[in-house]
Nucleic acid binder design. Structure first.
Lengths: 209, 209
DNA sequence: TAGATTGTTAATCGATTAACAATC
DNA sequence: TAGATTGTTAATCGATTAACAATC
């Protein structure tokens, strides 16, 4: 096992490995070689073995990898078994959609609660999750210290809100507003979902074919 | 101007350039050097000049780039002025959220119509867009040939639906289901939004800090 | 003109692929 | 045992950065 900094390229492939292995697992496939997994995922066998070698030795010569085992190892590397907890800030259409459709448990996250400013929503439940007033945010975070905040708020509120939450100790942001968040606090991570960017990439591709 | 295949890395940075230039433009900034833009975006000036050189010469020695002009050039490269048209398939929570919150026009797209199977939704309007029955899909696409389909349908329906739409002539898919779509038809592009993957990346990062 | 900054060529760095000894 | 397939080292490829002549 090599012990070096794991590159972003590798990190971004991990969820994809996990997804494909889960797929095989659900189909009842027991073992797979880097070669077959590679053709399924359309990457080289070399790359798979190289990627995995960042984290350990999970295969067996002459046999390949046990699907259930490799899946669980990668899940572990991704922190799926850490019991991370998150709060959702903004229960508008998008927050609502996430609460209703997204299987957080599947990624090892537990949704603690949601916050909104709308009096109509405060006190109601969506998919078993209580919507609280933004006024309770400070107290709630202080009492239960969730790990991650999901931001589905208006664009201009995102950065000041993130700064507030970082002060309260939140370490991860799943950011659905179309701004790039930043901080100089160590150990805080942002995952920005830029819908616009992906649509523009698509626009680029269909524009020149 | 070099004329080679533009790498994926470059293509994925284009929307980000566009976003930052729009930002500067809205703030009234008239000119910017690759150096200042680089520090704003946290990339090297070299990379910016190298990236832009794939598409033409947009700057002026000793001056830098005119913000409005460069923004408009990149918008043009991205196909923002092509008048692409799209349809939304699935008007559940997520489709609804996109219709209500997402400014398609901003990316140069026009939302033609949406489709759903729910009798409660069919015939209603969301944000000025009519929801039609899935039964009308074939006829509608044949008559108006939209360019892109947004898929916010259940996972297992995504690939067969995509195949159908490709047959009808759709060239681009903005896919919000958690499966990787594929086809062997030439000139069809998929932009898969994997919510799970990004959340798992975040999980990875907060798990080891 | 002098200073600034481009576009491009060359150098470096890192990521992907190939090769192969080790071994199940 | 023979065949298959790993983990790792070496080779290649491509992307990023540095350098600089051209020139506004």
């Amino acid at each position: 096992m090599k012990k070096q900094k794991v590159s972003d390229a590798v990190i971004h492939r991990l969820p994809r490995y996990y997804r494909h292995l889960s797929d095989l697992y659900n189909k009842g496939v027991v073992r797979i070689s880097s070669n077959s997994l590679g053709s399924k995922m359309d990457i080289t066998a070399s790359q798979i073995r190289q990627d995995l070698s960042c984290f350990g030795e999970f295969g067996q010569q002459g046999y390949g990898y046990n699907v259930a085992e490799l899946r669980s190892e990668i899940g572990h590397i991704l922190g799926i078994d850490k019991g991370h907890r998150l709060i959702i800030i903004g229960a508008g259409h998008l927050g609502h959609a996430l609460l209703q459709n997204f299987d957080f448990g599947h990624s090892g996250f537990q949704v603690d609660t949601a916050f909104d400013i709308s009096p109509d929503l405060i006190g109601t439940e969506i998919h078993g999750v209580t919507i609280r007033s933004m006024d309770e945010l400070e107290d709630y975070v202080a009492a239960y210290h969730p790990d991650v905040a999901v931001l589905t708020v208006p664009q201009h509120e995102a950065q000041p809100l993130a700064d507030r939450l970082i002060d309260m100790g939140i370490r991860g942001f799943w950011n659905f507003t179309n701004v790039e968040l930043s901080t100089n606090v160590e150990g805080v991570f942002f995952e920005d979902i830029h819908f616009v960017d992906t649509l523009l990439t698509l626009s680029y591709r269909i524009s020149r074919s």
